[in-house]
Structures are given as C-alpha cells and as structure tokens.
C-alpha cells in the first residue's frame, strides 16, 4: 500500500479556487499504484503532470519512485493550483517543480521524446464550448472540469502532442469518462501516432463512469 499524500495543509479556502481531489483523482492513483513496480523499473528521469491541481497525483508518483530519482514537473493553468502543488510537494517531501502554463507550451521544444511518465486528469466534463473557452481564459476553478464538446476540447489539444513528448519507454496516463468516447480516442491515437493503449481501470462513481487510459509505444 502506498500512502495517499498528506493534504492536511490545504483548506476549504484553497478548494474554493483549486480542484479538490475526488473520485477521478483516486482512480488515477489506483492505476498508478497498480503499475508501481513497472514504473520503478523504468528508472524514469522525467515525470510530467499536466493540470496538477492540489498536487496530490504528482506527490503520489514521487512517493512511488522516491524523491531524488526523478524530476517531477507539474503544470497548471491556474496559478493557485500551482501554489497548492508546491505546498503539497513540500508537505510530502517530494521536490515538485510547479509551472504556471497552458498544457506543455513552454516545455515542448526541450522535452521532445524525453518524458517517461506523462499524466493528465483533464477537464473532461461535456459543457457548452463557450463555457470551456471562458474557463480556459479566466483560469479559475471551472477550468478544472469544463471540457466543452464531448468533454474533449482541452484533452484533444494535448493528444496532438503526446507522441512528441513521450520517450521510447514513455507512458501516458489519461483520465476519461464514458462520454469522451474512449474507443474513438484509442483508435485515433493508434492510427495517427501508432500509440497503443489500454483501459487499465474503470469504475462508476455516482453519475460518472470513469476510465484510466494508458498509452505507450
């Protein structure tokens, strides 16, 4: 059992502007824990989480791999999320490097085929497109879930870049819900980039049917 990160330093106030870990976060932790031995054996140099929110997931990866074995990069579009990620890293003794950024924009050119572990729990809830666009520009708590058409508006942008980012042994973990049309995502990634994928975990949580996809070469 890998302990869930200590989040006792985060308060109600933090969760007014930053996504509070929920079922989607926990199924992602479970999928990572299930792969813990394989992840350690990869001896990953770089782990990159996009949309790190509270920092719970990156801290968990750091606990699996050990604080000094891997560089832990974490981006979020919401600056308060980046600051929570930093605090959660400190609280759990994992040196996470939070970066306020849209997806991987400032990292792309230098991380070509260099990311060993890529993780994204995106805003996946289907909403009006304008709602997702608004959330992306205001960069507030809405940006944690507003996913636009099919809940894929933000995820689609990242999917175009995954192949460029992953190292030869790299893996990409993505949280999705049924409405995102998971088979279509898998087929597209295989056809366009020759990336294979598996649904490594799925579960129902309230009204959501959550899935974890794992992509690799």
């Amino acid at each position: 059992m890998i302990p869930t990160p200590d989040l006792s330093h985060l308060t109600r106030r933090d969760y007014e502007s930053v996504y509070e870990p929920a079922e989607d976060t926990f199924i992602l932790l479970d999928a990572l824990e299930q792969d813990a031995d394989e992840l350690r054996n990869m001896q990953p140099s770089i782990s990159l989480e996009i949309g790190s929110g509270s920092g719970c997931v990156s801290s968990f990866i750091g606990t699996i791999l050990g604080p000094s074995n891997t560089l832990y990069l974490a981006t979020d579009i919401n600056e308060r999320a980046a600051s929570c990620t930093a605090r959660t890293g400190r609280q759990n003794n994992i040196p996470i490097e939070p970066i306020i950024a849209n997806l991987v924009a400032p990292l792309r050119s230098r991380l070509r085929h260099a990311v060993d572990i890529l993780v994204f729990n995106p805003p996946y809830v289907p909403t009006f497109e304008s709602e997702a666009e608004d959330a992306q520009t205001t960069r507030n708590i809405q940006g944690a879930w507003a996913g636009g058409a099919n809940g894929m508006q933000v995820t689609d942008l990242l999917l175009e870049q995954v192949d460029d980012l992953l190292s030869s042994q790299g893996r990409f973990y993505l949280v999705a819900v049924k409405q995102n049309d998971v088979p279509a995502i898998q087929e597209r990634m295989r056809q366009r980039f020759n990336l294979r994928s598996d649904v490594v975990l799925q579960r129902r949580a309230g009204r959501e049917h959550l899935l974890i996809l794992r992509f690799q070469r």
Partner: peptide, 23 residues
C-alpha cells in the same frame, strides 16, 4: 522553486519566437 534543472527545460513560446528562444 525554479531550479537550474527546470530552467534548462523552459523555452520562450511566444508567437513567432522559434529561434534563439533558449535559454
């Protein structure tokens, strides 16, 4: 904490800025 390991990975990504945009 911007450490030099991270600085070594960040590049400018402004519109049209594709050369000499690092470090």
């Amino acid at each position: 904490m911007v450490r030099l390991i991270t600085h070594n990975i960040l590049a400018c990504h402004a519109k049209g800025c594709t050369q000499n945009n690092f470090p």
